[in-house]
Nucleic acid binder design. Sequence first.
DNA 1: CTGTTAGCGCGTTCAC
DNA 2: GTGAACGCGCTAACAG
Lengths: 349, 349
Amino acid sequence: MFGYSSQMQRQPFENARITLADVAREAGVSAITVSRALRQPDKVSPKVRDRILRVVSRLGYVPDAAASALASTRTNVVALLVPSLTNAVFSDLLRGVYDAVETTPLTVQIGNFRYSPSKEEALIRTFLHQRPAGVILSGVDQTDAARTMLEQARCPVVQTMDLSDRPIDRIIGFSQRDAGRCVAEHLIAAGYRRPGFIGARMDPRSHARLAGYRDALEAAGLLDRHRFVNTPQPSSVGLGGQLFTDLLAAAPDTDAVFCTNDDLAAGALFETQRRSIRVPDDMGICGFNDLEMSRHLVPPLTTVATPRYAIGRGAIALVVNAGDPQVDAAETDVRLNASLVPRGTTRTL
Amino acid sequence: MFGYSSQMQRQPFENARITLADVAREAGVSAITVSRALRQPDKVSPKVRDRILRVVSRLGYVPDAAASALASTRTNVVALLVPSLTNAVFSDLLRGVYDAVETTPLTVQIGNFRYSPSKEEALIRTFLHQRPAGVILSGVDQTDAARTMLEQARCPVVQTMDLSDRPIDRIIGFSQRDAGRCVAEHLIAAGYRRPGFIGARMDPRSHARLAGYRDALEAAGLLDRHRFVNTPQPSSVGLGGQLFTDLLAAAPDTDAVFCTNDDLAAGALFETQRRSIRVPDDMGICGFNDLEMSRHLVPPLTTVATPRYAIGRGAIALVVNAGDPQVDAAETDVRLNASLVPRGTTRTL
DNA sequence: CTGTTAGCGCGTTCAC
DNA sequence: GTGAACGCGCTAACAG
């Protein structure tokens, strides 16, 4: 089922693949010198290097990744593990990763573990067997078995999107907990006194945000467990409307809601329009992530801007500079900030 | 910069990598028999096969992709070329591709060509050199040089998202042109007489939709070149509001607008809210793609539902069954449908 | 700075 | 149905 019969194959792409040996012969050097000229140019004399590079481009030589991987026991593949491909958060992370990778010889392979820690573990095992150049993880909550494998990996491992007291190796993110706390403080400062929460398919980071949010409410004496609604269903705009409806059914006097992401918040906002609930006067809404759409909603959505794209870029930087002795001493624990952006769905202070 | 000094490496992941030879020894057969038991199970006697599989799982043997690729001159990598990672259209395609790939030994590598045909060509060249198991393209408008390379590729090549008279190899998509025509007909039937258009960073598929839309307007005698606005900037919700504003500035009596995607349409809709323009009575709005959010807008957005996810899945199916002689005769030119979904932003017929 | 030797782990080819 | 020999294209380790 997965092999190709020779009949189906069309013309060969090249009559004869051009190899290192071909380049070496043309340039009058040995194969290894060509290899070096390409990978460690400064270890080859400028004169020879130039000659080689000229031949390389004349012949259109392209190194064979498989052969290189086999010989060096190292690939140029970075494994990127994400819990979802739907979530806009991860498409921004992805974009950062791909943009950063363009200036490197690295290649990315995505694994989607669908919010399942055991599936994440399985993917890690598979990827690690291919001797990746690096592994980039979403979050800091891998299984113990996964941690053990990653700690023994012969490559940089980068956790992202949150902070951790005991990172596996390198890490870049922001405090999800502080972000949640920040939202509560904003709502309280804006005068809301009966704030609630809606969440969908909560991952560990959503839980961290929720914990921070609850903490701050509790400290202010405003915690009411009836105002917290969530569901295992995947997040969506439609679901936001539904959960908001559920919240109002459970606690009708709720006067503000923190939505664990902007999709839910948009759905909640649309629901207030349908019900003619006045935002921000009678209901405050705060989202999370600051998606592009959010600032254009009517009214524009108060939310928390998160550095997803920067995290993607930074994660690749952490993979790349892991090999650089000069940068190695540098920061491998990068702390970024998420910042609350007050807009029209919450009262101005 | 991209090598790793041995100092930085932590403990080895395995003390000794388990190879085919290890399994073979334990099972009392030769390496090639193990190889066959894994790849062509029916060519090995059930008894031996069972024994081998047991040893494989006991030892935790995982085949080395690089060695396999080198020996067979074939990888299990499918190259997926997309013009954007931001656009929700491609994240759905992606999701379909990744979901379908899970039941196969294939692996996906994404190339983002950022709407640049020459960059697409370069990526194709690079990928083809790695002997992929297949190539999946977005659209049908590759450069001539790219076509030539692809025609000579030793692997299935799948074009997607549109139809073509002369596909390179296999193709799965829907008629962008018909979809555009359909929108015009809907607006006309709904009684709009001064319909316009807004578009952003138009790719060949947007142009095809636009062409169909124009054709139908022209046939109805409703074509007015002043009502067509577009920009090379990347599409976004914010831009939708801006382009809609531009359109009204250029042709204030416009009474309906086809937006080349739902992001623009949402932005246009939000702008009508800010301006208190009555939708759908005084202004009809039609989007394209039917994103999840669209049906939840207020009012819900009339749009065209496109089978992006199905295309992703189908593209992988076309790669996979390229090797299957039984299915080979089957359809390699899959035509799906896009269908207009009338909702609250256009008048009911 | 450059070359020689050896082998990475597997699949192809052909023999049995 | 099973195996032996060979080589895929490249790089590590050493020698010079």
